[in-house]
Every structure is written in C-alpha cells, then in structure tokens.
Write a protein that binds this DNA or RNA. Structure first.
Length: 519
RNA sequence: GCCCCGCUAGCUCAACUGGCAGAGCAACUGACUCUUAAUCAGUAGGUUCUAGGUUCGAUUCCUAGGCGGGGCACCA
C-alpha cells in the first residue's frame, strides 16, 4: 500500500510497477504527457455501437463498410490482443465497452510503435471510423489515439468468456478476495461492472423513494446529525466533543425526534434520507453508519402508514425492477400487496401455546430458558418477548409481513393500542427475514411521553445503557401540541440488498466500515 | 466478546504424512494485419499475514497476535 505515498524508491516497487513507471518516463521523454487534461468524445461506447447500426440499416456505409464520419471514444483499456502489425483492444466507458482495431498502415509507423507503451488499465481516447469485423462486432478502426492517463498499478482484471450459445458469461480468475474488494472498492468497481450496476440500482431506488414521497406531498428536510442528546431509537451512540462549545455531542442514532418537532411546527408531511450512526457490532445486516429514510405524516395513524408503505414498495418495484416479485438469495418474494399482517403477541402465543400477555416476567424467562436463549439476566418483559419472537417467529417472515402491535415496554415513542393499553400501535415490515420498516402511531401526549421516558430512565439506571434519554425539549415541543401523526423509518441499505439480491450490507455500501488494516 | 473457516507471485489458485514453493492469467522478449480467455516460443517475478516455538529441516505442526468471511452474542 505504501509505494504511491512514499518518495519514489524504485527499488521497493515490484517489477510490474517498475515497468509501468519506465513506460511513463519513456512517454515523457518522447514529449507525450501521459496524464492529459481533457478529451472530447463524440459518443459513449453504447451510443457509438448504435450509430453504426443506424448507418448500417440506412445503407449509408462506405464501400469499405465503414461509417463515413469519424467518432471519438474514450475509456479504460480492458483487453489487448496484438497481432504484429495490428491489434485489437476493448475499452470500457460509462456506457459499456467497445472494440478498437489498430493497424500499422492506418496509424503510421510511429503511432503504431507508441502503442507498446500502453498497458491494461490505461485510459485512452481514440478517433476512427466504425465498421463491423468479420466476426460481427462493431469496432472502431482507429486513425488516431492519445493516452489520457497512465495506469501505474495493474488492476486485478479477470477474463470473461461469453458462451456463444447461451450468452453466459464465464469468469476466469478475477478479483474475488472480499477484503480487497471492500478495502479497494475503486478496484472492485473498475473490474466488476456488476458491482457498478448494484450502485446504479441503489441510486435509482433512492431516487424513486424521493419521487414517491414528493408526489405524496412530503417535504424533504435536513435535521442535525450532531446532537446534544440522542434519541428516537434504542442504540449506543458515537460520542464526540465540540471544542468551541466545550460540550459533548452525539452522532444521531435516528432522526425521529427532530422530524416530529417539525410536525409540531406545522410542517405536516416531512421526510429525511440521512446517515444514522450506531456504535454497535458489525454484521451482514449492520454497518455502524447506515442510511435511514424516515417520514412523518400528520393526521395519519399506523394503519394509514401500512397502506402507504405498500404503495411505496410497489412503486419502487415497478419503477426499478419492472415487476412485483424478486429473487432474494434463492427465495422468491412477492411484493404484491396487501402484505400479510401478524399480531406480534398472537404469533408468539401460538408458538408458545400460551397467552403471552398473561405470562409474568419470570414465566417468560422460563420459556426463554427452555429454548436455551443465552444471557437474559438483564432482560425485562419487553426484551424477553422480543427475544422469543426473534427466535420462534422471525425466521419464517420471508414474504412481506407486517408484525403488529408491539408491547408497550418495547416502544416508548408509540401510542397505546386502542382498547389494548398494554400494546402499542406499531408495525415492523419484514421481508426476506430482514426488518426493513418500523412505524408507529406517534405518541403525542406529552404527559404519557414523559412517563415513558422516565420508564426508560429507570432501565438506564438498572444498567441498560441503550435505554432512551429524557429529552425535555422534545417534551416541550409536544406540549405545544402535535397533531395525530403516523411515522415510518426505513432501512434503505437493507431495502437495496433485497432489490439487488446482495447477501451483505457491505455489498450495497460503497465504502463499508472495516477494521484498521494496520492492526 | 465467543466459535468455525481462510490468508502462498499483481490476480485466481496448487504444493501428499514436515523434505528444493508451482500453474493459469497479468508482465517482459520475440513471431504474427479481422482477433476476442487470440495463438506460438522463451524470460522474469515469492518477507508463504506477523512474532515466537518444536524440528536436521516449517507454507505444512504448536502458541500468541493481525485482517477478512460465516455464525452466535450485542444490536435492529
């Protein structure tokens, strides 16, 4: 990793890097600047291919079978096949790949010799006429070429063979080391078009989420990521310090309490797409910083929000996938609403064969012990129910399922369930076993909210350092009056995982959090 | 934090029970003017993750550590 940052001690470079530096020096000696300032392509590779087909169909090709006007294309050299006095290459640009054909008698001796100084990975710009090779591939017959940037470090290109009959792409060698791919995402992206495609899809998904909410009359807002108090979720925060204010601050774990302050302020439909930060373990489903979409809609309850979520999922699926079913890691998942609804306590009661709400904390603990769930000493009723649910019910939630009406202890920001005060009006939407949405009829009674916060303070005093803090300013906001409001949080990364069939959250985050490689 | 698996050339991988560390691709030299995993001939390329230990001898066995992957826990 060190060569680029240390002064050139050529001795330390391995021979491949050394050779490329020598080519770089030769280019400069010949008066060629290997790091150009710009180039003006007339087409991206895809458009160039289309241009040829257009000319071909219109029967406008010259006698030599070429398009009359020259095109200019630029890209990174992916492959090179030299044949003495000619050569074929493929370059790749943002639009795909295109083949180049170099001939000594077209380019001239000097320009053809200069091709020796090119390597895989170099960026070049070329001009030339489009034609179709004997084997049928649209190709640029290069009349002039220019190096745009010298690659001094070999990219880990594999080779791809396309099966003529099935069109199947067979990968040879390649870059498959997970660690290398995450640490050097630039190299991963450079050699894996399919990885670039995942992130293109991610952008489309986020864009469709925005479009959907905008069309529903929501206003996109931005709230603080640096907060004097953290809240809106149960999680351990990242702690930092503001020097000038000499004050401890936290990176947000959720946007919730700020967005609801905006509802109090009369902004009756708001949303935010933001990074949240949680100081907890990493896993296939957890990255310390992740993207959350939250929205709040005045005058709605969680029933209304279930309907909105269904419409949102369908909107994105239609727009991005063009269908309402998908394959996730071998499972077929239908996105056709209405989604299944499952009351948490009913599902758990069925699994246990006993009425969950009638069980005492000790009885719940015994049930958990019977299923050899580990480390439950500190858990209260809410946590025990959550654990049991996670163990007994959650694994089955492959098809989209709204899990409803969580116990009050688990949901300090949710309104009590109408007619069942031990429960709250809350839902989580599970898909492919992942919790992707979480929503409430938002608690807007400031007195009840204070009681709930105080309950959390009790848990905190008992040693639960993830319990929520009492936010007096938020209570004050509620005292001014918050209309009935439905609010939803969505794990954007997980939703992207689902839609792009990626097994790990690291595969949908460009630069996932990793340990320090130095150790 | 715990368990399992992995770490060997730029990349992908071999190397029996502990016995000279190898191949394909990439690179380099040469041949080749419609190839596409181009082909053919040749050359070079290694701190076997790190530090100890056992041994005549360690990529291989042992101990500790690092990083990654998977699982569990934590957490959503």
């Amino acid at each position: 990793m060190s060569p680029p940052s240390t002064p050139d001690s050529m001795d330390d470079l391995n021979y491949v890097l050394r050779q490329r530096r020598e080519k770089l020096r030769t280019l400069r000696e010949e008066g060629v600047e290997p790091f150009a300032y710009n180039f003006a392509p007339t087409h991206r590779s895809e458009a160039a291919t289309e241009r040829f087909q257009e000319a071909e169909e219109a029967e406008e090709l010259t006698d030599a079978g070429q398009v009359a006007e020259e095109v200019a294309v630029a890209g990174r050299i992916l492959s090179w096949r030299g044949h003495g006095k000619s050569a074929f290459a493929h370059i790749e640009d943002g639009g795909g790949t295109i083949q180049l054909y170099f001939r000594k008698n077209v380019l001239g001796d000097d320009a053809f010799e200069a091709l020796d100084l090119l390597d895989l990975g170099d960026w070049i710009g070329v001009r030339g006429h489009l034609f179709r090779t004997r084997t049928g591939e649209v190709t640029v017959q290069v009349s002039a070429s220019q190096i745009l940037s010298k690659s001094l470090r070999p990219l880990p290109f594999g080779k791809v063979e396309e099966d003529e009959e099935t069109g199947e792409r067979i990968h040879h060698s390649g870059f498959s080391d997970q660690e290398g791919r995450y640490r050097q995402r630039y190299a991963d992206l450079a050699v894996h078009p399919e990885v670039r495609e995942v992130f293109r899809t991610r952008a489309r998904i986020v864009s469709e989420l925005r479009r959907f909410l905008d069309d529903e009359g929501f206003l996109e807002v931005e709230t603080p990521a640096l907060q004097p108090l953290y809240g809106g979720a149960t999680a351990r925060p990242f702690v930092t310090h503001h020097e000038a204010l000499d004050r401890r601050m936290y990176l947000r774990i959720a946007d919730e309490l700020y967005l609801k302050r905006l509802i109090v302020g009369g902004m009756d439909r708001v949303y935010e797409i933001a990074k949240d930060f949680r100081n907890e373990g990493l896993s296939r489903f957890h990255n310390p910083e992740f993207t959350m979409l939250e929205w709040y809609q005045a005058f709605s309850d969680y029933e209304d929000q279930m309907e909105l979520v269904e419409r949102m999922v369908v909107h994105v699926a239609d727009a991005v996938l063009g269908r309402r079913a998908l394959e996730y890691q071998g499972e077929t998942i239908s996105l056709d609403p209405p989604f299944r609804r499952l009351r948490l306590v009913d599902a758990l009661s069925d699994a246990l064969g006993r009425e969950v709400l009638d069980l005492s904390e000790d009885e719940l603990r015994d049930e958990a012990k019977d299923r050899s769930l580990p480390e439950l000493s500190g858990a209260g009723r809410g946590k025990l129910i959550d654990k049991l649910f996670g163990e007994l019910v959650e694994p089955d939630l492959v098809q989209p399922t709204f899990v409803l009406d969580h116990p009050r202890e688990l949901s300090p920001l949710a309104k009590p369930k109408r007619g069942e005060p031990r429960l709250t009006e809350r839902f989580e939407l599970y898909m492919a076993g992942m919790e992707i949405f979480n929503a409430f009829s938002e608690l807007n009674d400031p007195l009840d909210q204070r009681d709930r916060f105080e309950g959390q303070m009790g848990l905190r005093a008992a040693g639960d350092d993830e319990a929520q803090q009492l936010d007096e300013d938020y209570i004050r906001a509620l005292e001014y009056g918050m209309p009935p409001t439905g609010g939803v949080g969505m794990g954007v990364d997980r939703f992207v995982m689902l839609l792009t069939d990626q097994p790990s959250i690291r595969d949908v985050i460009l630069f996932p959090t990793l340990r320090d490689p130095e150790g």
